[in-house]
Design a protein around this nucleic acid. Structure first.
Lengths: 349, 349
DNA sequence: CGTGGGACTTCCATCGATGTAGTAATCGAT
DNA sequence: ATCGATTACTACATCGATGGAAGTCCCACG
């Protein structure tokens, strides 16, 4: 009684209010909204009532009834890592095309938080999860009891325990390293190994690196293989510092991602090395930074849009059919040769 | 009858199931979960039942009842823009500390999508919105009818129409430009103006730039003021290309953000200009890329963590008290002088 | 021994939208 | 005029959790 029609009052309008105003039942309002058969005149009346009251459906109620939320989670260690930022952008856009919204969870690589992710993120808040694990290995994931649809990014798990999207990391790393060897480089260092399990991304890249050296008839020198705690610029800079201090420094670097490479190049520059004349550098991920860097960075370019598309397709399929067998999707990649490994003449200096 | 205790069956357990298994009422289970007074023995029994069934509360139901969702939206044009990526990271972390999850909306700067954001994002899906507008001006925002708590980032709106967090853009731009003038630069260009309304971020930076030139007794030369459609590396590169082709090119660039500056520096390098000897460059935002770039980028460093913290505080306060008057928070910033404007000797070449 | 008050616990209504079943009205065909 | 088939709509139960009122039990106190 206290509220006039125009004034929305404190509480926002519900279907009941709309129904009352249009003189129909609540269900009819629901039908109008969901596009069921409703007479033209009635529909008209209901729509006017909706507009008048500024009615908007309550998502929580709808979700409760439908048993889904329309929200998917993207769980990565840090969203401001350029690779993840670019991927997040694509995934958010792709999800939107499918009527889903993306919620971001940042694990920081913390095992507890990653466990929380594979346990379905606490409450039934999301319909599915796209997850790029750092600390969890495929055994942890095989052990999981939660049934929230889950798609893994970025590593190849042999026995399918979950849906999974990745590029062929071994082959990509091999291509990158072979490219350096093909340029006549003989002491090719690797930056970015991690004390991780066998199927991890870093292990795959390392084995591609080793394979390429062998292909090229080059010896594997363990002192040229450097680990990185994280994959940030700082870690690349530190690794490069270590390498330049070796008695016999490398003439090329294969970095397991672009930020490591950018950090390493900064150190090389500071210490007077010319790139690529003295040291050639190849990265991995093809982030935007590398394209504009001086020198521009040669890198492995994964089909990021393909990763986003595949991940969502797998996830939506699984939401539709929880029991189907897990699938593996391998997305293409290519080597983008730029200045840091000697593409074209450096223009000045 | 068909389900044994261990087998979770198809549908996941609800409070009713837990209650039945523990031999108590549903409300008692609720009380256990929400930490109300419950006898020790009963609590014990309920907790065992919860563990046995792997029960987890249904968020939708809880939200329906409580009238909130525990989700906040972060709406930006593109999450892979480094500044937004870094901000997103901080906001996600800060929100988590307050028990909220962040959902990402990418507007792409599209007016329709931005309108959708200030209209509360469709359904009552989020409890509040942190929004960095591109196309919407303060008039659009003043016109809004939706009441979803909203905090604006990144521009100063004179008459408080909404809560708002920003740095003092005029003063920051003035400091940056003054720094270049102080280095003896006489032809200082600006990159990044936009055909926008008066209170927009780009307008504020432009007016700071003009003020600093005036302070330094330098003429404002309109041909040295270049617009940028977006704030990406590409746009900076194009602007720099234009500037170097002038009859009388600039000896310094003040770029309205760091990515513009990085793109511009790439072009300068390609055309044989030395930085900072021939052209000094200053950016804005202090993104990680700039610190490791060669040369490292002098920039205005806004207190990003402070922005994240303030934005969330304003938003949570508003959620608690919808009717309180809008507040403006100004966050600090500082000039970080690095190599691109002549800090320290460049070490090689 | 009766009683008042904690301390727990249960019962019931409720949040807002939707599925199901059922009623009323309309139409074409017989 | 009658019947079955549509069509258009309504009434009601329901999803799962929570707030509030009411009930039960036990024990101390007069």
């Amino acid at each position: 009684m206290t509220s006039t029609s125009a004034q929305p009052g404190r509480r926002s309008a519900s279907m009941k209010d709309v129904a009352a105003r249009a003189g129909v039942s609540v269900k009819t309002v629901s039908n109008v909204i969901n596009g069921a058969h409703v007479g033209a005149a009635t529909r008209e009346r209901v729509q006017r009532a909706i507009a008048d009251l500024g009615y908007r459906p309550n998502i929580s109620a709808r979700n409760l009834r439908r048993g889904r939320t329309g929200i998917l989670a993207l769980a990565v260690s840090e969203v401001d890592v350029p690779y993840f930022a670019e991927l997040a952008r694509l995934i958010v856009d792709t999800a939107e095309e499918h009527g889903y919204t993306i919620l971001i969870d940042q694990t920081g690589g913390d095992p507890k938080r990653e466990q929380y992710v594979i346990d379905g993120m606490g409450a039934r808040l999301v319909d599915g999860i796209v997850f790029s694990p750092v600390a969890m290995d495929h055994l942890d994931i095989a052990r999981r009891v939660d049934t929230t649809p889950l798609v893994l990014l970025g590593e190849r798990v042999s026995a399918g325990t979950a849906d999974h999207v990745a590029i062929d990391n071994v082959s990509a790393a091999r291509t990158a390293t072979a490219h350096l060897a093909g340029q006549g480089r003989r002491r090719i260092a690797a930056i970015g190994t991690q004390p991780s399990y066998e199927q991890s991304t870093s292990s795959m890249r390392e084995s591609g690196y080793r394979a390429a050296l062998k292909d090229a008839g080059l010896p594997v020198e363990e002192s040229l293989i450097v680990s990185a705690r994280q994959y940030h610029r700082r870690d690349g800079a530190e690794a490069a510092a270590y390498l330049t201090e070796l008695e016999n420094p490398p003439d090329a670097l294969f970095c397991f991602n672009d930020t490591l490479a950018l950090g390493a190049m900064r150190t090389l520059y500071d210490r007077g090395y010319r790139i690529p004349e003295d040291v050639a550098v190849v990265g991995f991920d093809d982030i935007d930074d590398g394209r504009y860097n001086v020198p521009s960075l040669t890198t492995i370019s994964p089909d990021k849009a393909g990763i986003a598309r595949s991940a969502l397709r797998l996830l939506l399929d699984r939401i539709a059919a929880v029991d189907s067998p897990p699938r593996e999707v391998t997305v293409s990649h290519e080597l983008r040769v730029r200045e840091s490994s000697g593409a074209g003449p450096r223009r000045h200096r």
